[in-house]
Design a binder for these strands. Structure first.
Length: 576
RNA sequence: GCACUCAUAGUGAAAUGGAUAUCACGACAGUCUUCGGAACUGUUAUUGGGGGUUCGAAUCCCUCUGGGUGCACCA
C-alpha cells in the first residue's frame, strides 16, 4: 500500500539518521523515541535520544544534543527544514515546505487507500461482535458493541487483513422460554404491524415472563417446562411460537444492522454450538474437566490462581454458556481457520472468558495466542433519563430512531428532496451515536446523556461530517474557476498540513492498540484545523494565485476525513 | 472477602515515560451572514490521598480512598 514511502516513513528516516550518527560516535544504539511534540512550535518530530544516552555517557543532555545536531546539519535531507535543540535536551525537527507539498500529492494519488498499512497483510482475522439474543430487545449494549466491533473490523481491514465478521446469537435458553410464556399469556400481535413493532412486542412479553418467573412459583414451573420443550422440540404449540418469534426478532435485527452498516459473514447460534461443545467437554472429563456436585466443571484456579471454577454442564445434564462458547470457538477455527479470532463484548464477560479461553488453550495449545477478547465499558444514563422519547424503555433501536428523528427536524426546511432528507437523517443520526461511543477509550463506562449526544457541535460525529460537507462545497464550486496563473505554492505552512500527513500513523496506532478512539480524537483535531484554515483563507478569489494548491489541500483534507470516518463506520454525506 | 477494571477543569473526554497536561461542552466576551453559522476568535478552570522507581510520572510499582464488574450449575 505504501510504495511511495517518502512521506509516511519520515519517522523511520529520522530514526535512521540518528542511528548512523550514534554508530559513527561509536555508541551502542538502544531505544529512544521519535514522536510528535504536543505543540507545532516545537517542531513536527522530536526525539529524546540525547536524554536517554546522557547519563551513561556521563555528559550533559543539552551538550550531547548539540553534538548530534551538528552532525545532522552536515547533511540534512530536503524534507527537513531545520533542527533545533529545546527544553531539557529534545532535538526537534521542522519539516520543509517541500515535504508538505509532496504529502498532499501523495494523498491525492492514494485516494481511498490513503492511511492503509501492511501490519497484518496476508492474515485472516475474524471479529465477533453485537451478539443480540432473539426474543429479547436489541438494547444499548448491543449498539455499543456493534459500533466498536464494526470500527475495529475496519481498522483491521485497513491494516491489510482479510476480515470476517461474525455474530453470535442466543436462540435457546431460559430467556426464550420466558418470552414464549409471556406470548402465551398475551397472545400473538397483529402480523400486519411493522416487523420492528412486532419485535418490540416480543421484548415486552419477555419482560412479562421474566417478572412472573421471579414472582410466581407456578409460572416458574411452567417456564421450566417450556424451556425443555424448546430444546427437545416435542410440543407443536411451543415450536410454532418459537419459530415465529425467532424469525421476527432476527428480521428486526437485520433492519438495525442495515441502518448501522454492518454485514456479517457468519451467524452462529447457541442452539447449534451447544452439542458441539458438549461433545468436546464430555470427551475430556477426567482430563480437563471434572465432576463436582453432579455437574461438570473446570477448575480454573488449578491452572492460574487468578481464575476460578465454572460449571460447563449443569447437574441436570444441560450445557451452559461456557460449553457453548467452546463449541463456538472450535467451530470458528474449523470453518475459517483465522490467524486471529477477536471477540468484542462488554467488560462483564471478561472473567468468564478468561476461564473459558484457558480451558480451550489446554485442549488446543496452538489456539492460545490466536484468541483475543476485547471488552468495553457499559453505557449508563445520566440520572432520571431512562425512557425514550416515546416513553418506552430505552433500547438500542429506540435510541437510533430518536437520533434520526432529531436530524430529520433539523433538515426539515432545507431545500432538499425528501429522499435526500431521509438519507441525511440516517447517516447523520447514526454518526451522532457512533461517535459518542467511539470517542472514548474502551476501558471506561460511557455516561450517556441524550441531550448531549444530539448536540451536534464541537466534539461530535455530525461536526466532522459537516466539516467534510463544507470542503466538498468548495470543491464543487471550484469547477467554475479558471485555474490558469493560479498555481503558485504558498511559502507558509498551515496547521492543517501539519496534521493531515499524520493520518497513517494514527491508523497504525489504532490498529496496534485496537482502539478506535485514536481515530476519533485525531479527526476532531483535523476538522478543527480545517475550520480554522477555512475561516482565515478565502480560496475562491480571482486574484488568489494559490488556488490550485489550496484546492488540492481541501481535496486531500476531504479524502482524509472520509477515510477516517469510514474507519469509525460513519458515512460522509454529500450535503446535509 | 478475593479478582478484574476505572479515577484528569463545573460536565464529557485526550495524552507509545517527555517539554508550559490537550480537546469539546458550559459560562463570559467578540467575529459575522461567509467558498454552507451544525462555523471561527479570545477568556475561564484540571491529574483522588500518600509513598517509591526515573534525568523526567496523569502514565510504571506499592499503599490508602472511592465508583463499576465478576466470583458454581443464567446468558
Amino acid at each position: 500500500m505504501r510504495e511511495a514511502l517518502d512521506i509516511d516513513s519520515m519517522k523511520e528516516k529520522i530514526e535512521n539518521l540518528i542511528k548512523i550518527i550514534l554508530k559513527n560516535l561509536e555508541i551502542e544504539s538502544k531505544n529512544f523515541s521519535i514522536e510528535h511534540p504536543s505543540d507545532f512550535k516545537m517542531g513536527d518530530y522530536s526525539t529524546n535520544v540525547a536524554m536517554v544516552f546522557a547519563k551513561e555517557l556521563n555528559t550533559n543532555p543539552k551538550e550531547f544534543a548539540l553534538k548530534i545536531k551538528s552532525e545532522l546539519d552536515k547533511n540534512l535531507p530536503k524534507e527537513i527544514e531545520k533542527v533545533e535543540i529545546a527544553g531539557p535536551g529534545f532535538i526537534n525537527f521542522y519539516l520543509s515546505r517541500e515535504f508538505f507539498t509532496k504529502s498532499i500529492e501523495e494523498i491525492l494519488k492514494q485516494k481511498e487507500n490513503w492511511g492503509k498499512n501492511n501490519l497484518s497483510k496476508g492474515m485472516k482475522i475474524m471479529v465477533e461482535y453485537t451478539d443480540p439474543n432473539p426474543f429479547k430487545p436489541f438494547h444499548i449494549g448491543h449498539l455499543m458493541t456493534n459500533a466498536i466491533g464494526e470500527s475495529i473490523s475496519k481498522i483491521v481491514e485497513f491494516s491489510g487483513a482479510k476480515i470476517i465478521r461474525a455474530n453470535y446469537q442466543g436462540d435457546v435458553g431460559p430467556h426464550v422460554a420466558k418470552a414464549i410464556y409471556g406470548i402465551e399469556k398475551s397472545g400473538l400481535p397483529d402480523n400486519n404491524l411493522p416487523i420492528g413493532d412486532q419485535a418490540q412486542y416480543i421484548g415486552e412479553c419477555y419482560a412479562t415472563g421474566s417478572n412472573l418467573y421471579d414472582t410466581d412459583e407456578n409460572a416458574k414451573k411452567e417456564i421450566e417446562v417450556i424451556n425443555k420443550k424448546v430444546y427437545d422440540k416435542t410440543d407443536d404449540e411451543v415450536n410454532k411460537i418459537y419459530n415465529w418469534g425467532r424469525g421476527v426478532t432476527l428480521e428486526a435485527f437485520e433492519e438495525i444492522y442495515k441502518i448501522l452498516g454492518t454485514k456479517f459473514n457468519h451467524y452462529f447460534f447457541e442452539s447449534e454450538m451447544a452439542p458441539i461443545g458438549e461433545k468436546i467437554v464430555r470427551e475430556n472429563i477426567g482430563k480437563v474437566f471434572s465432576e463436582s456436585d453432579g455437574a461438570i466443571v473446570f477448575h480454573g484456579e488449578e491452572h492460574d490462581t487468578k481464575l476460578h471454577t465454572r460449571v460447563f454442564i449443569n447437574s441436570q445434564g444441560l450445557p451452559t454458556y461456557e460449553t457453548k462458547e467452546i463449541g463456538l470457538t472450535i467451530t470458528k477455527f474449523d470453518k475459517e481457520n483465522p490467524d486471529l479470532s477477536i471477540v468484542v463484548t462488554a467488560t462483564e464477560q471478561a472473567e468468564y472468558m478468561k476461564v473459558v479461553q484457558k480451558a480451550i488453550s489446554i485442549l488446543h495449545p496452538d489456539l492460545e495466542s490466536r484468541m483475543k477478547h476485547i471488552t468495553h465499558g457499559m453505557m449508563r444514563f445520566a440520572s432520571g433519563k431512562m425512557s425514550s422519547r416515546k416513553g418506552n424503555v430505552v433500547t438500542g433501536e429506540s435510541l437510533l430512531r430518536d437520533s434520526m428523528d432529531i436530524v430529520r427536524t433539523k433538515v426539515e426546511d432545507r431545500e432538499l428532496t425528501s429522499l435526500e432528507k431521509e438519507s441525511i437523517s440516517k447517516i447523520v443520526g447514526v454518526s451522532a451515536l457512533k461517535y459518542s461511543i467511539l470517542k472514548s477509550s474502551l476501558g471506561s463506562d460511557i455516561i450517556y446523556d441524550f441531550e448531549k449526544s444530539i448536540s451536534f457541535d464541537g466534539d461530535s460525529g455530525p461536526y466532522l461530517q459537516y466539516t467534510a460537507v463544507r470542503a466538498n462545497a468548495i470543491l464543487n464550486k471550484a469547477n467554475n474557476f479558471d485555474l490558469q496563473n493560479k498555481k503558485e505554492i504558498p511559502d507558509y505552512i498551515t496547521d492543517l498540513e501539519k496534521f493531515i500527513y499524520q493520518f497513517p500513523e494514527v491508523v497504525d496506532k489504532a490498529y496496534l492498540n485496537l482502539e478506535p478512539h485514536h481515530v476519533a480524537t485525531y479527526l476532531t483535531q483535523l476538522a478543527s484545523s480545517f475550520n480554522t484554515f477555512y475561516g482565515n483563507t478565502k480560496i475562491l478569489e480571482e486574484n488568489n494565485i494559490h488556488i490550485t494548491y489550496q484546492l488540492d489541500l481541501v481535496k486531500s483534507f476531504y479524502q482524509t476525513m472520509k477515510n477516517g470516518l469510514y474507519l469509525l463506520g460513519i458515512e460522509t454525506p454529500e450535503k446535509m
